[in-house]
Design a protein around this nucleic acid. Structure first.
Lengths: 196, 196
DNA sequence: AGACACGATACATAATCCTAGATCAGAAGT
DNA sequence: ACTTCTGATCTAGGATTATGTATCGTGTCT
């Protein structure tokens, strides 16, 4: 079973993992089952072309046909853009966003009293602030903070806040546990446009 | 069934046709059946990923995963090479002459086996076909093709074929290098127009 | 320890790919 | 007219994919 597609499926997996998307989450977005994705990624089964397209599109990738001669050029193009920053040192306008978020949390604590969840959020934000985030990760943070902003006044903010805290922490963990020296995904993961 | 892969399969078909390869010839090289290829190309069936890879590799194409963001860049790269210069325009009576010539070459390859020279001629013809030629240039091509026609049956066609190949390539190079189109596409693509 | 999310695996069922033939109409070449 | 080559279709049958659901072991977070 020396599949010639192993390189492609491996790339897809790298991108998925680098983006912090679980097989289950991906399966929803792509319209496939988790078990299906697992088998594809581990090379236990050869996907149909359309399944693979569904899967990669959900990862913000496009499957393209390139003349063999141009493969090296395309590769270098992709790699160049692939790892623009990642953790390397920090930031910029994001700082403002974090500052705003931290102020918001403080205000919430003042208004409704501290809660474990709010503490957790505060904590995690402090951590995330000094890590340089990929575009995708930053997008996630942005979304979560936007949600926090939206629900701050709501009556039943509690469960939402809890969910946000969880998500932030999950992101933190994925970064903290990312294999130390090796794991730069070698592939792109930035998308970054479109907010919804 | 609006498959999301139709664009890819259509592209593959274009390349196949542009290369003058029949479905049957391709089916041999790719290890698939002709009927299979027909159905894939006409969108009547969705190929498996590995079938599609077999098929495209036999066409000197690679299936690559590209971040959506880079798609336009890659596309322009690919187009730059696909269209060496293209004085654009013109599908005229010359087309017929070229078609005939290409068939002739194919026949020769079939009869006497491929040779580097025949390959070169085939290649060059494909290029010249889409270029708008001056009367003088066209005259030259006409003469060369006539010679090819004349000597095809000859015992010692080899040196003649070689000479024709050389002359055609010289013409091609003069056209390809004349155009000042772009300084440097940043990714050189030299499609082998160096003389040998 | 208990709860939970992760990926891997198992299994039955449905769906479809893919092969291996043969055939057919159309375009070309002889 | 006859031959040859092209791409499109058909038939069957065997192989593989894909779904749905459920479970398992591992690790992490409460």
């Amino acid at each position: 079973m020396s599949y010639q597609s192993e390189s492609l499926t491996a790339q897809a997996r790298e991108v998925r993992e680098a983006s912090g998307v679980s097989q289950r989450a991906l399966s929803e977005r792509a319209g496939l089952t988790q078990s299906h994705i697992s088998q594809i990624e581990s090379g236990k089964m050869e996907p149909g072309l359309s399944s693979f397209i569904d899967m990669t599109r959900a990862l913000d990738l496009e499957l393209m046909l390139v003349p063999k001669k141009l493969v090296p050029a395309v590769l270098s193009l992709v790699r160049a853009q692939a790892t623009p920053d990642m953790h390397i040192h920090a930031g910029q306008p994001n700082d403002k966003r974090f500052a705003r978020a931290e102020r918001l949390v403080k205000k919430l604590k003042h208004l409704y009293g501290s809660s474990a969840d709010l503490d957790r959020i505060e904590d995690t934000l402090r951590f995330l602030r000094r890590v340089n985030l990929s575009d995708q990760e930053m997008q996630l943070v942005r979304d979560l903070l936007a949600r926090l902003d939206r629900y701050q006044a709501s009556e039943q903010a509690a469960p939402v806040v809890r969910d946000i805290a969880q998500n932030l922490q999950r992101l933190r963990n994925s970064i903290a546990h990312a294999a130390p020296s090796e794991p730069r995904p070698a592939y792109a993961l930035d998308d970054g446009d479109e907010d919804a």
